[in-house]
Design a binder for these strands. Sequence first.
RNA 1: GGUCUCUUAGUAUAACGGUUAGUACAACGGGUUUUCAUCCCGUCAACGCGGGUUCGACUCCCGCAGAGAUCACCA
Length: 506
Amino acid sequence: MKTRFAPSPTGYIHIGNVRSAIYPYLLARQENGTFILRIEDTDQARFVEGATELIEDTLNWLGLEWDEGPIVGGPAAPYFQSKRGEIYHKWGQKLIDTGHAYADPTDSETIQKYRDECNAKKIPYLYRNFRPENPPEWKPGIPLRFKADPKPRKWHDEVVGDLEAGPEVQDDIILIKADGMPTYNFAHIVDDAEMGVTHVMRGVEYLSSTPNYLALYEALNLEVPKLVSLPHILAPTGNKKLGKRDGAKSATEYRADGVLPEAMLNYLACLGWNDGTEQEIYTKDELIKNFSLEKIQNSGARYDETKLLWMNGQWIRRIADEQGISALYARTVSAPEITSRNTISNDKPTALHGNNDSFWPESAAPYDDEYKQKVLAIIYDRLKTLSDLKTMTTYFFENPTIDLEMITGNKFLKKFSEDELSDMLMLASRKLEKIPESDWNADNLQAALNELLEETGKKPAELFSVIRIALSFAPFSPALHLTMNVLGKNLTLSRLQSAATALEND
RNA sequence: GGUCUCUUAGUAUAACGGUUAGUACAACGGGUUUUCAUCCCGUCAACGCGGGUUCGACUCCCGCAGAGAUCACCA
């Protein structure tokens, strides 16, 4: 079992592409096979500096390590098509020698003329009907064309099923371009053969080119690998394949937004594949174990970011619960490494991490790991992404701006006068003041709050709301006793008193 | 236009001739001593259409419709 991911370094790699790396990876690992990364950089016009590194970063982040390819090398090196020119020329020459290819000096204007003629006559355009009669010798500057042998062809696709095509879709395709670079059509077949790839996985858009590939395999006297057509991932709206124009984000952007690789892998793997059970959350190992080609969906699957984010929340909690808060904490402060930075020149700027190495708010910088872990421990179960920390935890690191409207406008507190509210806060402050610093913990705080509830005769929604807002001035925060415990006695009391004073003087 | 592919709730999917068509996300409602979230409970919601085969069809066959892909010296 040998599979490959063969992207083109033409810009950032969006999540639609990422899935076509995941499936071959899973398959290879499942069978203890080999997973190859091959860079298809034969189109010099579309090549983007730094794109290869971005692809490597993405695979590394997701934990899709490759056995052969850039950096690691391998028996079929090099793994950049642009560096394999001699190989394609050798195979091209072989095709000429066996009468399966010819040099084609026809210029593009003439070719366009042929095309126009056919369109005018409303007959299908096939270049093989215009083959030059006496092709010249093949030399640099002249493209090499396949000499098609059109005939009915049948094949089996592991996902789509049994397929067949007639001669009308087989043509003389370009094998090697005038610039000496091979086309995808030729290069991928040669490379897959040289590299021993057993399973070719790619999008369904290649289905209609398959008859031509079959003809090439035949002419090259090569065994046809297993063909696997992957359904498209559809954009959130419309019925088109997800693409950069739909604002498809790169994996890198999601990483910067605090999406965990586990969640990304999980979501993408399950978009268009299902093992038949009702399991939703899969670890990488579980995916490897359960993956199967037969269970890949036939139809396109719509990309749903909401579900990705839900899954990310599940993973955040799972990591915290199973590996501990410190393990999750490590994810919030680690600087994700990007080898290529600011080198991707696409129309849409790629959100790289820039100089930001942490998901915490700026004001958290002076605080030590221990304190931040405490904050994380009480807040993590409401995170959808790690970057939520930036907006959800600021009041743990800096005194919030007092906004009395948040208190007086609160639906539970509207009925109280500002003096009453102020008294409630002062009462709480005095009550809590009696707890010695050494006994300041969640249990004692909970007990004190309960007593306060009885003493004041207020409803929890009333008493706790005013205290909660006075401490955080945030739309929401963790349970009161936990928040106060992390904040500590001094900050808790001073914030209660500040708010009380502000209410009184208003 | 030619050729090819696809079709279960808003979304992702389960079902391999017999089920009240299951699950998850979303939405909506409720519960867990405040809020937001988590967690739990509940509600809404689907087999594209038409023929056949069969005792019986989401499942098999045919047709139609809709959607998509492809017809490059791009991959």
